[in-house]
Write a protein that binds this DNA or RNA. Sequence first.
DNA 1: CGCGACGTTGATGTCAGTCAAGAGGGGTGG
DNA 2: CCACCCCTCTTGACTGACATCAACGTCGCG
Lengths: 244, 244
Amino acid sequence: MTDIKESPLSRKLQVFVALSEDELGVLKRLHLRRRSFVAGRDLVHQGQSDQAVYILADGWVCSYKLQPDGTRQIVDFQIPGDFLGLRSVLLRTSDHSFEPVTDIQAAEVFADDLLEAFEKTPRLAAAILWAASRDEAMVVEHLAGVSRRAADARMAHFLLELGARLKLVGMESKKGYVCPLTQYHLADALGLRSVHVNRVLRQLRESGLLTLRDGRVTFDNYDGLVKLSGFDPAYLDQTGPLLK
Amino acid sequence: MTDIKESPLSRKLQVFVALSEDELGVLKRLHLRRRSFVAGRDLVHQGQSDQAVYILADGWVCSYKLQPDGTRQIVDFQIPGDFLGLRSVLLRTSDHSFEPVTDIQAAEVFADDLLEAFEKTPRLAAAILWAASRDEAMVVEHLAGVSRRAADARMAHFLLELGARLKLVGMESKKGYVCPLTQYHLADALGLRSVHVNRVLRQLRESGLLTLRDGRVTFDNYDGLVKLSGFDPAYLDQTGPLLK
DNA sequence: CGCGACGTTGATGTCAGTCAAGAGGGGTGG
DNA sequence: CCACCCCTCTTGACTGACATCAACGTCGCG
């Protein structure tokens, strides 16, 4: 990336805080150590011994937890601009794994460097913590969705939420976005079986609500989706203290 | 409480770190400002304007999120020794509400006092952050349970987890514990309807696994419950760095 | 060409929701 | 003291959403 202002992370943060040249400089230095990982091979991130965080620059990742019975629950997806393992620095984290959904590029940041950056630029720290707390809120919303919404509404809500997140980093066009997730990923995230994911997607397509084909989500009837799913982006939009 | 060592919070923390007299003193000072709340009336805790945290001393609380359709999802329960609103100090928190399940007693702590205590006694801070990260892990586990476990296993897992938590603060006896939750609370937490909670409880009772009657959980066959639910307390037992 | 990953579809089963009714207990007001 | 209500718990009959089982299609790749 030639200009740090165009990196997904700073695009996201700048929606909420105008960053100074100084802060952008610190952000840029955090991006120096670039690494790649291939799709499917777990990024083992064992909170303790490995004191590093990654800033995802390109590609998608999922964080999941394996169940005793062999099924897995995908807790969240990470898209460009998201942190991997941030909580394991702030808090001692729980034991979930990261799997790159696609080949990815990420910047590796050592915990000490991150904490030093936080001290030097408190506004940047606040912005990053804001993003982290938004991730928290998404996990809670995810729980509520799996617990309380029917399969079609759950799917619609999930894809709308992803769209809203991608919009922040400039990866959503007018009415849809590129989405590399397989139906298995969707199933593992939404608490469904892949066969049923398939049926739900067909039903949504035939109702003229949305189309997911060839790795691309198209919203055919955005308002209809919002209505079906009860999507309310309030929990993503937490503006407020950071604007001051 | 006459001796701070006997407070639920310090009992919990001392399972993992031996606290010095100094640290116990700091902990004691955090407990000075005592407040009571009655069952059922929400503790509005609006992260921003109200910069306080509570340490629950007596009684049970649930934290929940209201859905657009009127149903609610209980995200977690708090028992004595747990913090209310800790995350809203560490991170800017998401918007869920707290409802006391019973009449409660809690110590009010101002954010500044807490942060000062953290600076003075880093080991105490580490212990409290450990507890917070355990809460994180429980939300993830909760998501996995609602998403992947059948109703009976979900119920069993939930009640086993509560038992393990209560044990840390000395509120679990050999084979059960006092549990003030109604079947509506259980339904709102587990993603079931209260009628079905009732049926599941009957089934567990008739299988000789557990009994929930008159506000008391009795484990009639602990090993059977563990087997049914796949309960693995690993995510609660995070020992490790704090022992050093 | 064969294999594995992903997607699609149908038939059938079952777990949990819905609807409905009632019982016990505690609180409140007449 | 009784009458009434509300909250919680209980049970039964029926329904339906999602799972299960089983095939088959398609595409990319070694």
